[in-house]
Amino acid sequence: MTAHPPFRKVLDGVATREQMFQLFSRHKDTPGIDLLSGTPYAGEWFEIEAAQYHFMLDLLPPLFMRTGMFGMSEFKAGYVTSVFFAIRIRSRERWFHGFCDLTDRQSPDKMRAAIIAHETGASDSMIRAEKLEAIWNVTPVERRGIPRNADPETGWAEHHGKRAILINAGRHDAAFKLLPDLSDLEIDEFLSKVRLRPS
């Protein structure tokens, strides 16, 4: 398993366009590091302006695109690429850039959760909605889903389009549960299993 550096914020405040481009290459003159692997950049993130998020989205066709997130098709080095995030934090839309090592396919979701945790003052001060958002973002894709089957026999007809995650994975009583229905104990257990704060 590949060891990834911890997620870390590299600029206080919101980066201007000029600062953003400087941060894209901030390690280029650092002696004694392996730039070809992209490792020095992996895990770094900073906040950007909305205009820069949309500029980068229009620059090249994205490698991948999901709600509130897209990855650049041009890699920085190795398997490290730029991922841009649009995240609503405390009822305000904000935009971020991070370098993710895609040898870990969950890296973008983990980074998004780490950004939310950092910007809200860590999981112990997060409101319930933010905790649920963090849990959704770090849960592997195969353990989460959105019921789309309207067949009343499934029991999920009334929950069409709502988010659900698999609880007790690996046990005989594993089952999908709606994200808002998680108990406080289940939320704490989920958050204790993931590292949301940088070292």
Rank of each mutant, 00 (worst) to 15 (best):
Q22V: 05
P40I: 01
L132Q: 11
S183C: 02
H160C: 07
T67L: 10
R105N: 09
K28N: 15
F99T: 03
S192V: 00
L11D: 07
P198Q: 04
G13D: 13
V14L: 06
H118R: 13
R66C: 09
R66W: 08
K131R: 15
L179H: 05
A129R: 10
E74M: 14
E49W: 04
F75Q: 12
G68T: 03
V194D: 11
F75E: 12
Q22A: 07
S123V: 14
T67A: 13
M56S: 12
Q52S: 08
R143I: 00
A50M: 06
P61T: 06
T120F: 00
T154Y: 03
M65Y: 06
V141C: 03
A86C: 06
L102I: 04
L178V: 04
M69F: 07
Q19F: 01
E44Y: 02
E93W: 03
D104Q: 05
D109Q: 09
R148Q: 13
L59A: 14
I115F: 02
E186K: 02
S107L: 01
V14Q: 14
G78Y: 04
P180G: 11
L36S: 15
K76Q: 13
D34P: 09
L63R: 06
M56W: 02
R171C: 05
E142V: 09
P5A: 11
G13S: 14
T67D: 15
T2Q: 11
D181Y: 02
N168I: 00
I165Y: 07
W95K: 02
S125A: 12
A42D: 00
R90G: 03
T139Q: 10
R163F: 11
Q19V: 01
T16K: 04
Q22K: 01
K76D: 02
R148Y: 10
E18A: 14
A50K: 15
E49D: 12
R143M: 09
T81D: 06
A174R: 01
L60F: 05
G38F: 04
I187L: 07
W95F: 15
H172N: 02
